[in-house]
Nucleic acid binder design. Structure first.
Lengths: 133, 133
DNA sequence: CCTCAGTTGACAATCGTTCTCAACTCGTCT
DNA sequence: AGACGAGTTGAGAACGATTGTCAACTGAGG
């Protein structure tokens, strides 16, 4: 019991480092399986189960973001990206990333008002883009 | 071609009615499997696949709300007719319906700015409610 | 060098969800 | 009434993401 740094025996193994690095060098969100593929392509073979385990731990530790796609798949990304939302075209799938301090503020105040703490949110906007109209 | 309501041949079968009724009489969010159970308990046996199909259609048609639990399961509930969003407690699942004209306006203007028409959106707010803290 | 907790990976197992397909329902036409 | 056919249904198989299992491995410390 000499541990105190909140990382009770978490070895920086080759596999873990590889996962983190891959995630770092990849833009945006990726599923566990994508990461697994990327690792393979990179020559850094890592077992699928290990990728899942590692991503979970990292997410639990708050070192990476985790969210769900429309169809329930878990996707991860390195955390430092700025928070933003998506404007998606229904027809062609084109996606624009948008930000809105107003929305951030609004969600926080709404949550406050109802006594909710530790607030996060998801927002997706759908529409038909100019080209598809 | 006397159809115009966007429902090209959607029969109100016993099964569909049963699903809708069950959802109506149940508070809050429920998974497809829960609905299937409830139906069984009610004596209105409906195949699991049918429950899934029906819930999907209803959700597509906007007649019910669909969201994902933390672990990727799809859950549904009847939604009141007015457009609103959800403030959900991560711990106990308690849900508050919230409205926000500001957000509605914001999404529309953002979409406009990018040339998107026919705009809709989804917004979910997560947090830890007062009781669960 | 030895030990042991932590870790790994191949593979099986789970579990929600979707697919397949033959049987069925029910308006509609004759 | 009977035939027709698009839409629907249900049982079970198939699927795909994720998690569990367990023997082999690794590495820091004694």
């Amino acid at each position: 019991m000499s541990e105190s740094t909140g990382s009770p025996g978490l070895r920086p193994t080759r596999q873990r480092l590889a996962v983190v690095e891959t995630l770092d060098s990849a833009e945006g969100f990726h599923s566990a399986q994508e990461i697994h593929d990327l690792l393979g392509r990179r020559g850094e073979a890592v077992g699928l189960a290990t990728v899942y385990r590692t991503l979970q731990r990292l997410a639990d530790a708050g070192e990476i973001d985790m969210m769900r796609t429309e169809d329930g798949e878990a996707i991860y990304r390195r955390c430092s990206d700025s928070h933003h939302h998506h404007l998606v075209c229904r027809a062609c799938g084109r996606t624009v990333e948008v930000e809105g301090p107003a929305v951030e503020r609004w969600t926080r105040s709404i949550a406050d008002r109802h006594g909710f703490a530790d607030v996060s949110h998801t927002l997706e906007i759908f529409g038909t883009c100019a080209d598809c109209r």
